[in-house]
Computed example of a mutant assay.
Amino acid sequence: MSKRALAAYADTLRLEVGTHVGVTTVYPSMVNSPIHASTRAAGLSLDGVSRPEPLEGVVSAVVAAITARRAPRDVATTRRGRAEMALARHAPALADRVVRRTVAAGAFAEDPLAEGLRRRHGRAG
């Protein structure tokens, strides 16, 4: 929810002050950080779902957005991220199915925390 809140805030800023200031939302992939140790401990590991990217890739994307002649609206920091953003924008129902399949049948197939999702989508564990 916090990522969507940030995107909504950027959309609001763009509407309110976008004629005076460029507003870009950067969407990094998974970056290895201490937060992932705590999510692993809670059974919510993203290992196998998302590939970690080097911090330098995120920094490069931010620098490119800051130095662009016109601020880009949305910036994904990986090729896969750009493909996922395009899929979500142009085929949202398909993107939803891919996410449900990834969570319900993929890396979280045995995870007790994903039980409700698997049950709702016909893959009870």
Results as ranks from 00 to 15, higher is better:
Met1Lys: 13
Ser2Phe: 04
Lys3Val: 09
Ala5Ile: 04
Ala5Trp: 04
Tyr9Asn: 11
Ala10Cys: 12
Ala10Thr: 02
Ala10Pro: 01
Asp11Ile: 03
Thr12Asn: 08
Thr12Pro: 06
Leu13Tyr: 06
Leu13Cys: 00
Arg14Gln: 13
Arg14Ile: 02
Glu16Tyr: 03
Glu16Phe: 02
Thr19Asn: 14
Gly22Cys: 09
Gly22Thr: 06
Thr24Glu: 07
Thr24Val: 02
Tyr27Asn: 11
Pro28Arg: 10
Ser29Leu: 06
Met30Ile: 10
Met30Cys: 08
Met30Val: 13
Val31Ser: 07
Asn32Phe: 11
Asn32Glu: 11
Ser33Asn: 12
Ser33Val: 03
Pro34Arg: 13
Ile35Val: 14
Ile35Asp: 03
His36Val: 12
His36Phe: 15
Ala37Ile: 06
Ala37Arg: 03
Ser38Pro: 06
Ser38Thr: 15
Ser38Leu: 10
Thr39Leu: 15
Ala41Lys: 14
Gly43Met: 08
Gly43Thr: 07
Leu44Glu: 13
Ser45Ala: 12
Asp47Ser: 13
Asp47Trp: 03
Gly48Ser: 08
Val49Thr: 14
Val49His: 10
Arg51Trp: 01
Arg51Gly: 10
Pro52Leu: 08
Pro52Glu: 00
Glu53Gly: 05
Glu53Asp: 05
Glu56Asn: 02
Gly57His: 06
Val58Thr: 02
Val59Cys: 12
Val62Asn: 01
Val62Arg: 08
Val63Lys: 13
Ala65Tyr: 09
Thr67Tyr: 00
Ala68Gly: 01
Ala68His: 08
Arg69Glu: 14
Arg69Cys: 05
Arg70Met: 00
Arg73Phe: 02
Arg73Met: 10
Asp74Ser: 15
Val75Arg: 04
Val75Pro: 11
Val75Ala: 07
Ala76Glu: 13
Ala76Phe: 12
Ala76Met: 02
Thr77Phe: 04
Thr77Gln: 05
Thr78Tyr: 10
Thr78Leu: 07
Arg80Val: 07
Arg80Cys: 05
Arg80Lys: 13
Gly81Ala: 00
Gly81Gln: 04
Arg82Ala: 05
Arg82Gly: 15
Ala83Phe: 13
Ala83Lys: 15
Glu84Tyr: 12
Met85Ile: 06
Met85Trp: 01
Leu87Lys: 03
Leu87His: 05
Ala88Pro: 00
Arg89Gln: 01
Ala91Cys: 02
Ala91Trp: 01
Pro92Ser: 01
Ala93Ser: 13
Leu94Met: 10
Leu94Ser: 00
Leu94Tyr: 03
Leu94Ala: 03
Ala95Trp: 01
Ala95Gly: 06
Arg97Thr: 03
Arg97Cys: 04
Arg97Met: 04
Val99Leu: 06
Val99Ala: 10
Arg100Lys: 03
Arg100Phe: 06
Arg101Lys: 12
Arg101Met: 13
Arg101Cys: 12
Thr102Ser: 15
Ala104Lys: 01
Gly106Cys: 06
Gly106Val: 07
Phe108Asp: 08
Ala109Ile: 05
Ala109Cys: 06
Leu113Met: 01
Leu113Ser: 00
Leu117Asp: 04
Arg118Val: 00
Arg118Phe: 00
Arg120Gln: 05
His121Tyr: 09
Gly122Thr: 02
